[in-house]
């Protein structure tokens, strides 16, 4: 069974009725790293949000199956407990909620929903320290509110830290490379690569071929106008870099 199967997904903005996803089909295998590329406004972030269960989107048709089970009726936290993780394109600041409290509450809430034991304090602290060291995240940053006062690049790193702590089955990385300097791009990519495993699948949304030199995908999908219009191997990214999206936006029209 595939880890994720999206069939004929139609999504519109609630209240407005504006249609964003138009019969999107996508299958992600267990352990697979899939890149999604596509022009601005093609619906990549919308797909990521709909997977994570963000309110405000209406699924009018289609199905999303995770391990064969529909997740459409699940709350975002239930999806997280099933292994869905979204690294946000624009991570938000949550002032007043300490990063450590947040991480720990999230981890234990997921474990509780899965019927697992809570993680002990020393174990948790060790886990966070090791991972944050690897990602170049200082302890002073962890003492602040979630993402508060972090630079754009620091926020992206913090998302990968969260991912490493929460150990998802399906990670969706929405433009995790944007806003990163060259060194940070390498650090973040290494962080992501460390998490590659036969048990974990990833959807890497990006505009730049460069990220895919670091995180080498098993497959590349092209999205245009709310659907997947082409899929191929990693060389597809190079082709897009050379030719742009014109042919797809025309084709999909």
């Amino acid at each position: 069974m595939s880890l994720l199967e999206i069939k004929n997904l139609h999504v519109e903005i609630e209240d407005e009725g504006k249609k964003i996803l138009n019969g999107l089909n996508l299958t992600i295998e267990k352990g697979q790293v899939a890149a999604i590329m596509g022009p601005n406004g093609s619906g990549k972030s919308t797909l990521a949000y709909v997977l994570a269960g963000r309110p405000g989107y209406a699924v009018t048709e289609g199905e999303i199956l995770l391990n064969g089970e529909s997740i459409l009726e699940m709350e975002p936290n239930e999806r997280a407990a099933k292994g869905v993780f979204l690294a946000f394109q624009y991570p938000v600041e949550v002032p007043g909620v300490a990063t450590m409290t947040f991480l720990r509450t999230a981890l234990n809430a997921q474990r509780k929903l899965r019927g697992e034991n809570e993680v002990s304090t020393p174990e948790f602290i060790k886990m966070v320290r090791e991972t944050s060291d690897n990602l170049g995240i200082g302890q002073d940053m962890l003492r602040r509110g979630v993402n508060v006062g972090f630079s754009g690049g620091e926020k992206k790193r913090a998302e990968i830290l969260q991912m490493a702590i929460l150990q998802p089955r399906l990670a969706v990385l929405d433009e995790t490379d944007s806003g990163l300097d060259i060194d940070a791009l390498r650090i973040v990519s290494e962080g992501v690569n460390r998490l590659r495993s036969p048990e974990r699948s990833m959807i890497v949304i990006t505009h730049y071929q460069r990220l895919l030199d670091y995180i080498v995908p098993d497959v590349v999908h092209v999205m245009a106008k709310g659907r997947v219009v082409r899929s191929g191997g990693k060389e597809l990214a190079l082709e897009l870099e050379a030719n742009g999206y014109a042919q797809y936006t025309d084709e999909a029209a």
Partner: peptide, 19 residues
């Protein structure tokens, strides 16, 4: 954002109110 990390609605609200 909080719920997407696994925190249920009541607890997410409680954290934000506490903040």
């Amino acid at each position: 954002y909080l719920m997407s990390r696994g925190i249920d609605e009541a607890q997410a609200e409680a954290l934000l109110i506490q903040a």
